[in-house]
Design a protein around this nucleic acid. Structure first.
Lengths: 189, 189, 189, 189
DNA sequence: AATGAATGAGCTTTCATTCAT
DNA sequence: AATGAATGAAAGCTCATTCAT
């Protein structure tokens, strides 16, 4: 990945974030990246492959961060906190993924859809597994763990992404506090 | 609003739901509605005005339902339940509004944005006010009511809209049970 | 086939004749036809389908003419003359078909190739069959009739199409005289 | 002409033969030649000059061969045979020239057209002159020698180039036999 | 001298909008 | 009032040519 390619990806991320996939023109990306339009096609054979490259990059970055955050020696709740904190670094990127996820569901190729779906599945599964373990150890009330994990994930998104579209952004601490109060309150530390 | 106009709006709703605003062509709408393309322009001066009309329609329908649901004599929680139930009727419409909200945020005119934002504001406010009253009456733990209302609303969306994209849909009862367990458990009935 | 469609086809014929398929832009065709660029796509879903439409038109026109030219009662040589005369009317169209044939062989779809090949096959076969009959009746020296028919056809093309690229065009009579002298001289009338 | 230059020319010949001038990309040529794209521009200032170089090369090669074939002591028909045989060696190159001739006629510059036209003129003239001499010596029936020479040349092309596009190729002997039967039969040896 | 990444003019195609019928 | 053929601006993409290395 050379410097020019990176500039293109950065520009595409920005433009996809601001205008969505369909409403972003290749010309726009080129202008933002400060390169010629043709240069984009040197690295990506078409607009959609550029999208896929971005999704792949984001997904692997986030997965790595989440993986690193987990320390097997620590307790469930500590790891959950750290995992969520780890993900918090990627607020912006996360917002982008979400926007693309919905748009791509209708117009994108299977490859792009799969990559996006895979990411969501992994995050939800990550939470679900930890809930399952906690329940087994008697540390969490039995429940439909997949559903709860799913809503926890969505709530997290609401707090860090949706809320700030029309309000002052929440601090990371406020986000954690909220999740703790409503979803982890039955969890014995 | 004559019959032809209604058919156009219905067709546009369906197509916007399936493909989004930008990816829906006026031709498609005309074909689904079973009218000529020109006819659409007899009633709506352009594609965006058609969008606005849809949003206005949806918002007022939903508002009316929610208003009717509230009976001043009944208790807070009963009204909240009924209000949420009322909204549940509009699952599909709600999904549409959400999709459009995000897309319009970037490519739409102010008028369209306002119409969409207004709806979310009203729903959240509806919940917030009831939470405020409950807290005042000592029936709910004090909290950042706007934020809680916002998350309740978003959770509701997650449960009825997002979940079923990849799972079996939840029944209305399951949805209500979930909201009660996690958000209304501190509420004394 | 309405008037506008006819104008587009006429313009495309002219432009394909002058510049070939690949070097003809849709803009050019539109300008020559005096219609908007979009209009072309109203009638032909893409540039290649326009090409196919032209080929189909030409082929059927020429076939019809050749068919009408043949009168079963008349002698072989008379019919051959009349058939060739009939085809002579389409000098220009023939030139176009030849140009397209060669270009399409490499870049076109199978449909276009087939249509063009079919035409050549029919013409050559038409001649071959008449040669076969003449030989059977002892009126023509035995020979590799398919090859002779093929060369007769090509010679005809050379005379009416290629020659005039750099010389004064030959009259129809001169063309007939030439063919008679070199290919039909062994034919007893 | 160094080795690199020769490889480029060889590659361009091959690609022009297969896809034509316009449909051949400089990238393709470079890849086939096994050199960098930029290298081509070291030797040829643009794509068309590369075309001209090829035509020049072919023309001079063929001319040399034809010249060598003629032996002033031998009879007309012997020389004609030898000349045609000499040209037969260049079947492939000839086919290329023909394809290019037609394409260049419309999109090429004057220089390219001239180079190509020059070749055809020379070949036809070569035949014409020999016919003129034969007629003068009373060895060939008087006729429009330029036209006959032109058609002989075209017939030769039909036999060695066009025929094999859809049939088994003819042997050199078959080609010669055909030409003799139809064009040289009045020639007294 | 050799390279291939970078470029933008120019191509085909789409689609919101207009307007004659 | 209803229509859909006509339109051109704007999109994604290609490729001959340039130029820094």
């Amino acid at each position: 990945m050379n410097e020019r390619q990176a500039k293109v990806i950065e520009a595409a991320k920005k433009s996809f974030s601001m205008f969505g996939y369909k409403a972003t023109t290749v010309d726009q990306i080129a202008k933002i990246a400060g390169v010629g339009k043709g240069t984009i096609y040197t690295y990506f054979s078409n607009k959609e492959e550029l999208l896929q490259a971005i999704v792949r990059t984001l997904v692997s970055e986030m997965r790595e961060t989440a993986d690193n955050a987990v320390e097997p020696d620590k307790s469930f709740s500590e790891n959950l906190h750290k995992g969520i904190y780890g993900i918090l670094i990627y607020r912006k990127e996360h917002a982008l993924l979400l926007k693309l996820a919905d748009e791509v569901r209708e117009i994108g190729t299977q490859a792009a859809k799969d990559a996006l779906q895979q990411f969501e599945n992994e995050v939800v599964n990550y939470i679900k597994k930890r809930l399952d373990v906690a329940i087994e150890k008697g540390k969490y009330t039995d429940c439909h763990t997949e559903l709860v994990a799913f809503v926890m994930y969505k709530t997290y998104i609401s707090l860090v992404v949706d809320w700030e579209k029309n309000h002052e952004p929440l601090s990371n601490e406020e986000v954690l506090l909220f999740v703790k109060q409503y979803f982890l309150n039955r969890l014995e530390y």
